[in-house]
Design a protein around this nucleic acid. Structure first.
Lengths: 142, 142
DNA sequence: CCATCTGGTTTGTGTCACGTACTACTTGGC
DNA sequence: GCCAAGTAGTACGTGACACAAACCAGATGG
């Protein structure tokens, strides 16, 4: 049963859209037995080889949260830790070939699903949507 | 260090925007010691009094996941279970006055933060964004 | 009235996130 | 050099969250 409360507010529309997109991510990730956060981890590692702390900054997580997250991914052979050449305390986290492959598959799957979601938009609408979303994403985080 | 990979794809823009909005939700919720799901639960109950299974459908969760979620909220006095008048097995979940008040506060806080996020858009851009997001949200879920 | 279905809870398992405490390495001053 | 402070990472305990499987009890259709 769908209730029509009239036009959505900007907040409502953005919040609901975010849940929609998150569900898309969760479904795409689940196809490869990943959680959203694991997928996000892999995505970040696509073009970086950060240490645990920097990784935590990207994800908005505490360093103590990273240990388990990376360890679980490592146990599945998606990621590997290697000692930093410059800093004896530090570690560099990197994708394994298997992790890179899985990331590519998931990325493609997410793309497919987002394409389906925006299927009925005109090309012009899609362009505008992308531009507006990009603007918001690139706004300073405070 | 920010890497500029050129213009974002639609997928990238929507995915990143969804994380941005989710973080807004998490922060607003955290101000009142709530998690995002708890906040979502309260939001759904604003204009409904569903049973556990229907609630699970709204949230995309299994009924067994609902028991704990509702129980934690109930323990905090935000929500209450009452027996359904028509069905002896069933339960109706409803906001308490305290829960309703907290929901209002959080809603206002989220509104404020989303407003800040869209601050630098023109009124016309905001309108278009809202319209586009609304369209996507209202697309069938399959 | 019985077989079946459905709403809800329980229990056990795993992920995720945090705070605190700890180890080990690095760095800045002396 | 050497020590105090800071920083990178891990370990551990706790709690929220989610699921599956097993279960109970009330509903429902022959």
């Amino acid at each position: 049963m769908i209730v029509d409360d009239g036009p959505l507010t900007t907040t409502d529309a953005l919040v609901r859209l975010s849940f929609r997109v998150q569900r898309v991510l969760a479904e795409a990730a689940a196809e490869h037995d990943l959680s959203v956060i694991q997928l996000r981890l892999l995505g970040i590692l696509r073009d970086r080889t950060p240490g645990m702390v920097e990784l935590g900054r990207h994800l908005g997580l505490d360093k103590s949260s990273m240990t388990g997250l990376v360890s679980r991914a490592e146990k599945r052979g998606l990621v590997e830790r290697s000692p930093s050449p410059d800093d004896g305390r530090a570690v560099r986290v990197a994708l394994t070939p298997r992790g890179r492959e899985l990331t590519a598959h998931c990325t493609a799957e997410v793309d497919r699903r987002i394409a389906a979601l925006t299927d009925h938009l005109t090309a012009a609408q899609r362009t505008r949507l992308t531009a507006l979303a990009t603007t918001l994403v690139q706004a300073p985080t405070d």
